[in-house]
Design a protein around this nucleic acid. Structure first.
Length: 407
RNA sequence: GGGUUGGUAUCCAAAUUGGUUAAGGAGUUUGACUGUAAAUCAAGUGCUUAUAUGCCGUGGGGGUUCGAUUCCCUCCCAACCCA
């Protein structure tokens, strides 16, 4: 057996909490390091995702990175696709009920998710990855079994859960089926016999329910390993698609880079710790340097180093020169074929999607934000009488939004 | 089932003995500054190939009125209390 001096940095880096946790104990039921050392088989490490959307962002990637660390240490990652639970929606952290999804949407989303996880997880090494859909067991539960699950918890226990407590006190609606969610997630742990479950700190309740249920069904209770919730690029609220402060794993290199290079100073250390393997002690004092290193490092993970470096170059060109000579490929094109001429510029702004509406386009021109081929447009009603006067030119709103006009 | 309170823009939130542009804040967009940022300052933030006595807009629909976020009818949604 390995000695107790084995290095557990991979386990503890960026980890917010492990429970149960008795650091002094050598009981493998109370101390995860002991469990790892003393187990005669690879541990089964569970991580669930609900395929409720199509995009995964860096915040979601954190537990998956930890899962990868477990894989690299020789353990089995069990990824649960919550195709069944997605139809209920995790009430965690929600102030409102989630919309329920159709089976087709869920299936499609699951595939998209797995694709996005390829750069993070080890899909190759045999025995290191299991992918399970929880409809496999949840779909088979009959009413008697559901009743048994429900009987393991009280309304009071449920209402103690953060999101519910809040909604209850604010007199916001809580639907009964939402109570089922933690029980189902917990039952997943029973079904796959999880040794460890990973999740964000907001998952503590749900993971703890898993332990209770495992005990109820006479299985060994799992450990919970909680990871911090990543703050978004605004530095204020947690990263989330709906708040728009996220970096999606599917984004192209340039877009990723330009978001990450302006990571708020206060967040740099967390981002390095949670999203890279770089030794924190080696970081530069200069925050600007760190931002760039962070951006390069993360973009490399998903797009390779070459693309990352190129993105850096392009980003610098765009921002520093504030001009339209960005890399030709990275400027989206808009076809003028739908436009009837003579056309007003503000109309083209709206029609091309550069602005939300032609009204907004108009206002942006008034605000001096619109440039055509690098020249500021000052006349709100500027009208172009034929398409060929615009073809090949670049239309720009602000510093970041460009389109190239084509036929 | 009975009762009470409430629903205002992306979110929060004012205003109504019926009166013209639906306060304010947050968010967001743009400009200045800068380290690309943050902070700060300024402007914008329903629609329309618009300059017009235009159209839309306070949960949905209808009504009264010169005029409705406000009054009436009806429907929908939620919370709370009672059973």
């Amino acid at each position: 057996m390995p000695s107790s001096s084995q290095n557990f940095d991979w386990l503890n880096r960026g980890t917010s909490e492990i429970f149960p946790n008795q650091p002094q104990s050598d009981n493998p039921e109370e101390n995860l390091e002991q469990r790892i050392l003393k187990s005669d088989r690879p541990l089964r490490v569970k991580l669930g995702i609900d395929p409720t959307g199509t995009d995964i962002h860096l915040g979601h990637s954190i537990p998956f990175r930890k899962l990868r660390a477990f894989q690299d240490a020789g353990h089995t990652a069990v990824v649960i696709i919550g195709d069944f639970t997605a139809k209920i929606g995790d009430p965690t952290g929600k102030s409102e009920v989630r919309r329920q999804l159709t089976t087709e949407q869920v299936k499609e989303n699951a595939q998209t998710y797995l694709k996005q996880l390829r750069p993070i997880l080890d899909f190759e090494t045999p025995g290191r990855l299991e992918i399970r859909y929880n409809s496999e067991w949840l779909g088979k539960l009959d009413l008697a079994q559901i009743q048994e699950l429900l009987a393991t918890m009280t309304v009071g226990q449920m209402l103690a859960k953060e999101g519910f407590a809040e909604r209850y006190s604010q007199e916001k609606p809580i639907f009964l089926h939402e109570f089922l969610y933690p029980l189902m997630q917990g039952y997943d742990s029973v079904a796959i016999e999880a040794d460890v479950e990973l999740g964000g700190t907001d998952q503590k309740f749900n993971i703890a329910v898993g332990r209770d249920l495992q005990r109820h069904f006479h299985k060994k209770p799992q450990f919970g390993l909680l990871l911090p919730i990543l703050l978004g690029t605004d530095g204020a609220q947690k990263m989330s698609k709906s708040l728009g402060n996220y970096v999606g794993l599917r984004e192209d290199a340039l877009s990723m880079y330009s978001k990450l290079e302006k990571t708020p100073d206060a967040l740099l250390k967390d981002y390095f710790e949670l999203l890279t393997n770089i030794d924190l002690a080696t970081l530069s004092e200069n925050p600007r340097e760190c931002q760039k290193l962070l951006a390069i490092e993360i973009v490399s993970q998903f797009h390779g180093q070459d693309s990352a470096l190129q993105a850096k170059q392009t980003a610098e060109q765009i921002v520093l020169q504030g001009n339209t000579h960005a890399d030709g490929d990275s400027v989206p094109e808009y076809s003028l074929s739908e436009v009837t001429f003579p056309a007003k510029i503000f109309y083209i702004l709206g029609a091309s999607g550069l602005c939300k509406s032609s009204g907004e386009g108009r206002r942006q021109i008034q605000g001096g934000a619109v440039k055509l081929e690098g020249e500021k447009i000052t006349d709100v009603n500027l009208t172009v009488d034929a398409a060929d006067k615009l073809v090949g030119k670049v239309l720009q709103v602000g510093k970041k939004k460009f389109i190239r006009l084509v036929e």
